[in-house]
Design a protein around this nucleic acid. Structure first.
Lengths: 181, 181
DNA sequence: AGCATGCCTGACCGATCGGTCAGACCCTGA
DNA sequence: TCAGGGTCTGACCGATCGGTCAGGCATGCT
């Protein structure tokens, strides 16, 4: 039953998102995705060259916004950078929390793949901005707790409304981050 | 070259810890562990019934302390519970950060295994204590950010001295948590 | 009608996984 | 000296993984 390409393509994406969220990227096989779509595994690989290609297409919008945030932070200096980073990151985490939930805890390993190498660098710059460009361990520790904890919390509270989640996170960040000298 | 059981047993544990930390539990095969020890895969399975048995033995001390903390929290009420939970959890995360690093991000999936089912319940009670037994979303969000972020930060800063890491985390928690009414 | 194009599939591939098993090897006690 | 038990291993198992491939089948153009 040959249909429009785009249709099946999107169905696979939706199914993959569901499975990744339920069992993680590694824990999901192409067979699982095919079963959810109701097609063969070969069909999945007809629409996507590799399993990884599904993941990267799924994450593409979030990654674009992340890269954009990185540039906006780089354009600031001092306290402004910290504020831009905090608001931008909370915004991004809230907006893309479904995508984040897909990768529950698989970030560390996935980031080691060359396709996501630049994300690693961006996250280092984010820590730097959160820490107010300070080298003090206490500042960097607080930055990391927030940068790791916020996505996790967003993934957990998928059902909370944006208007409730965002201000709660922003208030927390403001309390938690030491103000830049 | 048959040696003392305990010797090989411990070597396997140490090797497994290294590999788990480097590639995660799923990403590490029995073959990998055997190679690191310098023995055969069959030998690994002679000393441990299953791959999961290696993990549970590796995590046993940390889990014992966690269970103990849970009981100590349950014995308190109100603001005292929040303080005990905060100090106890930071202590535990700092002390066992190497064990935590083993599972970088695989917690969500591993916790679904029946062997770790009680951990799930303990972590819910921890969130509750961190949130000061409040049902307000903002309080629970802050609690989750900290509970997820602290282990991650501890795993990242493996080389920072305990005396530096612990007070920094405690100060952060005190700033971040809303005081109980 | 004939043909090309595009969507889809079953069968298959090599690799790797966790786990089993019969037996080789070494040490010890009788 | 020899028997027995603890330690270890190579060979093997069935299952599953991501990925390939030749061909089936509908559609639409000539």
């Amino acid at each position: 039953m040959a249909r429009a390409v785009a249709e099946t393509h999107d169905e696979i994406l939706v199914a993959a998102a569901r499975r990744f969220a339920a069992s993680g990227y590694r824990g999901t096989s192409l067979q699982d995705i095919a079963r959810e779509v109701g097609c063969s595994k070969a069909t999945v690989l007809y629409h996507f060259a590799t399993k990884e290609a599904i993941l990267t297409e799924l994450m593409a919008p979030a990654i674009d916004v992340l890269r954009d945030l990185d540039e906006r932070i780089a354009a600031q200096r001092g306290g402004a950078a910290q504020r831009v980073a905090a608001e931008g990151f909370v915004d991004l985490a809230v907006r893309f929390r479904r995508e984040i939930a897909l990768l529950r805890g698989e970030f560390p390993e996935l980031l080691q793949q060359p396709a996501f190498a630049h994300i690693q660098r961006i996250s280092e710059r984010l820590i730097d901005a959160f820490a107010g460009h300070s080298e003090r361990p206490a500042a960097r520790i607080a930055a990391l707790v927030l940068l790791a904890g916020i996505p996790e919390a967003c993934a957990e509270f998928v059902d909370v409304r944006d208007e409730e989640l965002r201000p709660a996170l922003l208030a927390l960040v403001r309390r938690a981050l030491e103000p830049v000298d």
